[in-house]
Design a binder for these strands. Structure first.
Lengths: 111, 111
DNA sequence: TTGACATATTCTTATATAGGAATATATTGA
DNA sequence: TCAATATATTCCTATATAAGAATATGTCAA
């Protein structure tokens, strides 16, 4: 079997670096496809295709304004990713605590 | 060009649901491969291969104990994902605020 | 209606899997 | 050394891209 489809969920959609670039860019404000094409170093068809994937999983929303399509991030769709990573927060905080502890012990030695 | 390699970074590694399952299981405590195989519904070779990917991107660490290999999550490796999602926190909080506002306005109407 | 602009879709191709089967490697105890 | 246990790796195949080129669709202004 091949890999899960990028359209299956937000996790797969953001696995692609280009799509994270687009999301980062849109985090600031709503933008047209043309603006995204200019900002990224990618062809227009590629941008449109990435936007379609992002839209399919709900990570962005689009609205038409004249000839342009304006895209913006749907923050709520990123929340599940944030929540998932949060479940490991305890682990890295513990690691940071141990690093700090060792540093202090080493410092104490020098005295 | 095909998709980015799953071994390229943590984002790609966690895109696979099975690997998230494994990480969730390991979040509780260190486990042997055999325990993981029993807990997940996957064959042993599949588990070993997923563990290799997770290890290559630094999401898990392994140590041998007799015939067994014990794996545990490296919390620090998940931190970048958490940080990235955090940059969008402002957006979903804003959305939640607007939802709340509308609910209150609707409630006010009823009076 | 026509031309120009903005975006989306289709088609093709090279490539990276993920799972299953079979096999290899490592470690322990007798 | 040999058998048994625990993991890892290799080989194979079906499938899902991602990028580029070409083309289609949609919208506006005259």
């Amino acid at each position: 079997m091949a890999r899960a489809a990028t359209t299956s969920d937000a996790f797969n959609a953001v696995a692609e670096p280009r799509r994270r670039d687009i999301l980062n860019y849109l985090a600031m404000q709503e933008r047209s496809v043309g603006e995204i094409v200019d900002a990224m170093e990618m062809g227009q068809p590629s941008v449109s295709k990435h936007l379609k994937v992002l839209k399919d999983v709900g990570l962005v929303e689009a609205r038409r304004e004249g000839r342009q399509m304006l895209y913006k991030v749907n923050g709520m769709a990123i929340r599940p990713l944030h929540e998932w990573t949060s479940t490991f927060e305890r682990l890295w905080k513990h690691q940071l605590f141990r690093i700090k502890e060792r540093a202090e012990a080493k410092n104490e030695e020098k005295k």
